[in-house]
Amino acid sequence: MIDILTTTFIATFIAGVIASAIPLVLGSLGETLGEQSGVLNLGIEGMMLFGAYFGFVTTLETNSYFLGLLAGIAAGFVMSILMVMLNIWLGLNQIVIGLALTMIGGGITSVLYFSTYGQTTPRLGQPDVFPIPVLSDLPVVGSSIFQQPLAFWIALVLAFVVSVVLRNTNFGLRVRAAGQNPNSLDAAGGNVVRTRTYVALLGGAFAGFGGAYLALMSAGTFTPFMTSGIGYIAIVVTMLSRGRILWVIASSFVYGISVSVGTVLQLTSFDLPTDVIKMLPFVAVMITLIVFARSSYVPPALGVPYTRGAR
């Protein structure tokens, strides 16, 4: 039995929470942008896998975490171009295309991984940390929170930026109008298709970033289907947060805690089976959905393609 209350243990626990929460924060940010504008991105799982794989490969080949993250963002972005063309421009069924994108992302990455690294299963080293002066010398929180890679801080800044953009800018107003009532946005001179296009592309980039963060910073490697449902949890987080970024971050960290608690319980004498630990976050989500069944709210135009003049 490990002593739970040692400082190193708490520090490791906090670091574990952050490692599993940040990919979800990034994915949920992208999903929030999309859902606020009325685009349901059910393919986010595939986009995250794309970002994870191409980020991993790039970092492995170039030894640069920066290029890896960029490649991950680009991969998610490229996949969202396909989604934009099919869902927003052609107005095809967003659920069917979302499922297809999930399968494409999972299929292509696992086929590529199998044929290139399937035998060697390489791992990446530790990413460089970006210590915050003074604060990083604090006990417990210093080594866990204030000695994170730069990408962690970028993710938090991005969350803040998305929050400000959605609430306090004209663009954010257009995004929300496209999700609430696309007809009135059109009548007011906005362009529904263009607004949704920009937002969906951004969402893809966020999902790719989230996937790359998962592979490069949290896991240090790529394994096929490594996202194991984070994309779907991002959709739930988005639906429960209703566009409020603080809630997105808070619920992502609750997810991170439920992942880390599972690991802790396994390390201590409880000896939980791995299956239970993998299930824990989904059980937590399900309980949340049951308790807040009435308050999970989505924009009225979510999933409905916009056709000008159609009633």
Binding site: V96, I97, L99, M103, P224
Partner: peptide, 18 residues
């Protein structure tokens, strides 16, 4: 090949169908 190759074929059918 990885057997998940079939998954790509299925996904492509979904896309082309739509």
């Amino acid at each position: 090949l990885d057997t998940h190759f079939l998954m790509i074929v299925i996904a492509l059918i979904l896309v082309f169908m739509s």
